[in-house]
Simulated scan of single mutants.
Amino acid sequence: MTGFALDPEQEQECERLRALATERLRPLAEKGEPGRVNRPLLAALGEHGLLERVFAAGALELCLLRESLAYGCTEAETALALQGLGAHPVLRAGSPEQCARWLPGVRAGRTVAAFALSEPGAGSDAAALALAARPVAGGAGGGWRLTGEKRWISNAPEADFYTVFARTGEGPGARGVSAFLVPADRPGLGGEALDMLSPHAIGALTFDGVPVGPEDLLGEPGGGFRVAMDTLNRFRPSVGAFAVGMARAALDATLAHTAHRAAFGGVLGDLQAVAHRVAEMATRTEAARLLVYAAAAAYDADSGSPDVPRRAAMAKLLATESAQYVVDHAVQLHGAVALQRGHLLEHLYREVRAPRIYEGASEVQRTIIARSLYAQHASAEQHAPAEVDR
Rank of each mutant, 00 (worst) to 15 (best):
A315W: 06
G304C: 08
P306Q: 07
R353Y: 06
A282V: 08
A330C: 09
A370M: 08
V274F: 09
Q272A: 14
V292A: 02
V326F: 01
S305M: 09
A313V: 06
L317D: 05
M314S: 04
E351D: 15
H343W: 00
Y293S: 05
K316T: 03
A354E: 13
R350G: 13
P355G: 04
T320H: 00
R311I: 08
S362E: 06
A301T: 12
I368G: 06
I357N: 12
L345W: 00
K316V: 04
A279S: 14
E280Y: 10
I369C: 03
H329A: 09
A312R: 03
E346P: 00
V352L: 02
A298I: 10
P309W: 08
V364H: 14
L268G: 02
A298V: 10
A336M: 11
A294M: 02
H329W: 12
V267R: 07
Q324A: 03
H329P: 00
H347W: 03
A298H: 10
A275D: 15
V352I: 14
F264P: 00
E280C: 12
V331F: 00
Y358L: 15
V308R: 05
P355Q: 07
M314F: 07
A336L: 14
A287F: 14
H329N: 07
V337Y: 02
E351W: 05
V352E: 01
G304I: 08
E280Q: 14
A370V: 09
S303N: 07
V308N: 07
Y299H: 15
V308M: 09
I368H: 06
H334M: 06
G342F: 03
D328I: 01
Y325M: 03
Q324M: 05
V292I: 05
M314I: 03
A338R: 00
L318T: 01
D328V: 04
Y299F: 15
A279I: 04
A295H: 04
G266I: 11
A288H: 05
A275N: 12
D270S: 11
D302P: 14
A295L: 03
Y299Q: 14
V326Y: 02
T283E: 15
S322L: 03
E321W: 01
H329F: 06
A361S: 11
L333W: 01
L318K: 00
Q332A: 15
F264W: 14
A294H: 04
A338M: 05
R366Y: 09
A294G: 08
R311F: 12
S303F: 10
I357R: 11
R277H: 13
L318N: 01
Q272C: 11
A262W: 07
A313K: 00
A282R: 10
R356G: 09
G269R: 09
V326L: 02
Y293Q: 08
L348D: 07
R341E: 15
Q272R: 13
A338N: 03
G269Q: 10
V308P: 11
V327F: 02
A297P: 07
E346K: 01
Y293T: 00
V326S: 02
E351M: 10
E280D: 15
R284I: 10
A323L: 02
L268W: 01
Y299S: 14
R350L: 09
T283R: 14
Q365M: 15
T283D: 15
G269W: 08
A301P: 13
V364F: 14
L339Y: 00
A273G: 13
T320V: 03
K316Q: 06
L317E: 05
